[in-house]
């Protein structure tokens, strides 16, 4: 298993790239959902304001 993970002398570069890819996608995914959540709160608060 460990030999499979070994990219020779390119370990850092290959796995670094993969980590970057995963990190960026994760950042996007998280920011996406946080924005949505924030927006939902905002709209619901607004509804309460206009209804009352």
């Amino acid at each position: 298993m460990l030999t499979m993970l070994d990219m020779g002398k390119y370990n850092f570069f290959v796995w670094g790239s993969m980590a970057l890819f995963a990190l960026m996608m994760a950042v996007d995914l998280i920011s996406l959902h946080r924005q949505k959540k924030q927006l939902k709160r905002q709209i619901k608060a607004r509804q309460r304001r206009t209804q009352s």
Binding site: M7, Y10, F13, V14, M18, L20
Partner: peptide
């Protein structure tokens, strides 16, 4: 697709005769 593509690219694709394993960066780059 990402999981499949990366596993395929990182472990099953043969190393490049010039660049060795470093060319695997290509699969995300």
């Amino acid at each position: 697709l990402t999981v499949y593509g990366l596993i395929d690219g990182l472990f099953f694709a043969p190393p490049d005769y010039q660049q060795g394993d470093s060319y695997r960066i290509m699969f995300v780059h």
